[in-house]
């Protein structure tokens, strides 16, 4: 048998295993979407039907029709966008300093940025709650945004640092020789080149903020202020085994971040692991 045909056989076998593994991984997502679009009578059924059949939007209507859905979606958007904007503005400055300057304490700063990303949020819940309580910021989205900076900012700085390091400093120097100030060089040369990095970083920040549950659950007590993950859980306890509605709600909660993630995943491939980007 020629080496070529052996190779082809090997590849075909790998393809089969790969597709099977992908199918297993994808199944929960498939099942969620399938259930979400199914009429109630077909959801609770033994044996389960694995192929799409009749199609309905009733589940989505029920999920969206729950009292606070739109308010909760709005909260999620405000918190996500607020967290990302603040950490981008504040973080870009620090990332630039860390990537471009040699200064005393730089190494220590990086170590701190990495170390704090290993502190579990659940350990911070109590003191953060008490802090916001003192500031009269519990049950406000501002308080939640402030809290989310604790995880969003360190990883924003670290990730942007990686993107800035990849831009040759000679470009900025050339612009400065041509008469730009340092600020001008940054604005006209570095910033445009940094755009993909800024986008990738903001999507990651957005996804993290969108997915966070514990802090939002503790800090927001008003039903209409809660974010979507909290809504999803209350939906669950409120509706018992209305799996159709639940899966529709789950689909709606997941949709924005899955789409955003698929859009930017190419940009982030390699430099990720050391950036501690939480999935």
């Amino acid at each position: 048998m020629s080496i070529d045909s052996r190779r082809r056989r090997r590849r075909r076998r790998a393809d089969a295993v790969g597709l099977a593994a992908a199918a297993v991984m994808a199944f929960p997502v498939y099942w969620m979407v399938l259930t979400a679009f199914r009429p109630a009578s077909r959801i609770l059924h033994v044996p389960p039907r694995f192929w799409p059949g009749p199609f309905t939007l009733d589940n989505f209507r029920r999920a969206i029709g729950s009292d606070t859905f739109w308010a909760n979606a709005r909260s999620s958007v405000v918190v996500g966008v607020g967290t990302v904007l603040i950490s981008l503005v504040v973080g870009t400055l620090a990332a630039f300093a860390v990537a471009r300057f040699a200064f005393a304490g730089r190494r220590a700063l990086i170590l701190v940025l990495l170390a704090v990303q290993t502190i579990p949020l659940i350990a911070l819940v109590i003191p953060v709650y008490l802090l916001l309580n003192d500031l009269a910021l519990t049950d406000t989205l501002t308080g939640v945004i402030l809290t989310y900076l604790a995880f969003a900012l360190p990883f924003t700085v670290w990730m942007l640092r990686g993107f800035i390091v990849a831009i040759p400093p000679e470009l900025e120097e050339a612009a400065m020789v041509d008469g730009c100030g340092r600020l001008g060089a940054f604005r006209r040369v570095t910033l445009p080149l940094l755009a993909p990095g800024l986008i990738a970083t903001s999507i990651f920040g957005l996804v993290q903020a969108w997915n966070e549950y514990v802090l939002a659950y503790v800090l927001l007590s008003g039903n209409d202020k809660r974010t979507l993950p909290v809504w999803l859980v209350s939906f669950q306890t409120g509706f018992g085994t209305d799996y159709g509605g639940l899966m529709a709600g789950a689909t709606l909660t997941a949709l924005p971040v899955v789409v955003a993630f698929l859009l930017v995943q190419r940009r982030i491939a390699a430099g990720l692991a050391t950036g501690a980007v939480r999935g």
């Binding site: 997502v29 789950a250 909660t253």
Partner: peptide
């Protein structure tokens, strides 16, 4: 796609 799934969505599913 799985990576982006919020924890709470995954847990519900």
């Amino acid at each position: 796609a799985v990576w982006a799934m919020p924890f709470m969505v995954a847990a519900s599913v």
